[in-house]
């Protein structure tokens, strides 16, 4: 099973990862980060394929993937 780790303090809330996740597992978080934006949050970790689409499109390199 893959695990996605998002650095929420570096996230600028562009949500390209949300748009490109093929299983739509990433969602905007309800809390704000220190920047004042809603960061992306992995909602359903157990279904992640580890395809790294989110990490490849992330402009701020906030996403690490473990498999």
């Amino acid at each position: 099973m893959a695990k996605v780790k998002i650095d929420i303090e570096k996230c600028k809330g562009c949500f390209l990862c949300v748009s490109f996740c093929p299983k739509r597992l990433i969602k905007p978080d309800s809390k704000l980060n220190r920047r004042g934006v809603r960061p992306a949050k992995m909602e359903i970790d157990s279904q992640c394929l580890g395809c790294a689409m989110c990490a490849v499109i992330c402009p701020d390199c906030c996403i690490e993937i473990y498999k």
Binding site: K10, C61, I65, Y66, K67
Partner: peptide, 16 residues
């Protein structure tokens, strides 16, 4: 679990 994607070493760990 093995790390399969992370920040490259040549990119500093700071926010742009």
């Amino acid at each position: 679990a093995q790390k399969i994607f992370s920040r490259p070493r040549s990119l500093r760990n700071i926010s742009t």
